[in-house]
Nucleic acid binder design. Sequence first.
DNA 1: TATACTGATTGTGATTTGCAACTGGTTGTG
DNA 2: CACAACCAGTTGCAAATCACAATCAGTATA
Lengths: 164, 164
Amino acid sequence: MDAAHRSGCPINLTLEMLGDRWSLIVIRDVMFGNRRHFRELLNNSEESIASNILADRLKRLVANGLLWKRDDPSHSQKAIYSLAEPAIQLVPLLAAMGAWGRRHTPVSRELSVRAELLENGGPQMWDAFMAELRHLHLDAPAPARSVFAELQAAYLEAVQSGIE
Amino acid sequence: MDAAHRSGCPINLTLEMLGDRWSLIVIRDVMFGNRRHFRELLNNSEESIASNILADRLKRLVANGLLWKRDDPSHSQKAIYSLAEPAIQLVPLLAAMGAWGRRHTPVSRELSVRAELLENGGPQMWDAFMAELRHLHLDAPAPARSVFAELQAAYLEAVQSGIE
DNA sequence: TATACTGATTGTGATTTGCAACTGGTTGTG
DNA sequence: CACAACCAGTTGCAAATCACAATCAGTATA
């Protein structure tokens, strides 16, 4: 085992990889917001991440095999970040986090409708979502159901009904 | 909403409360190791937490309503830390973290048998475990099934079979 | 040529972390 | 009663990390 690790406990090792204030925010935005470029992640971030932190986290997540990076053919300087399989398998974890946060923290309604939908959908919905993420980020075929569209629709409806 | 929060997203708010390298380690040790005193948490910690960090985390977790503290009648200086309901509801989240860590990090076998059991047991086992935690940490009646004992037995067996 | 956009880096100060020593008090033992 | 062990922390300090704002050089667009 790598001496750099504090222990071989799965909870500890998960914490060592993702236990900071920004890593899962970045993954959340790539996953649920489909943000694939540095600037998209930087400017559309609800929590306004700093650019050096974002650069550092992207580098670390790529190094740890959670994201992967490729050139954008439309622009020689642009990079496209995608979820790797380990990050896709974080769906149940993020669903659990959303469910817990919805009960025990002061969430806003618009930002929690997706968490609610994902919680109620259960493992069946998570599997469908993961299949879709494999299509969007890896080379898997498109699944019949688009959980992404369902989540977006629910979010947009919540935003709309909040305005009017 | 409190202006101290970065956003009203449930994932973000969960991260603000628990997204550091130690908070969930402390909760894990109270929950799965049934460690209730400061020194138990300090000395038996697999990851060797520093005493000032432990003191800070315990204070924060109590302030945030995840743990609660009472005097130990057997010793005027001893304090007993217990899980509050929000922390008990972290069981599915910790199960998901364990399951992910088991697949994507270099876990040790002894320390991952509990995670495996908890993953395979599914929501039914998590509910039974939460009922038992409510008995151990709150004033709920004792449930018929002891998931705690099942987890400990599996862990001890793994340790045994590793030695011999 | 001017403007905006690309993924970052740099500099600075504030905060958090890790480590070791220490504190004031309590309890059990000879 | 003396003394060691134990109790929950606190203190001091160096190192690492974080947050914020300004900046960078190389594209693309007008």
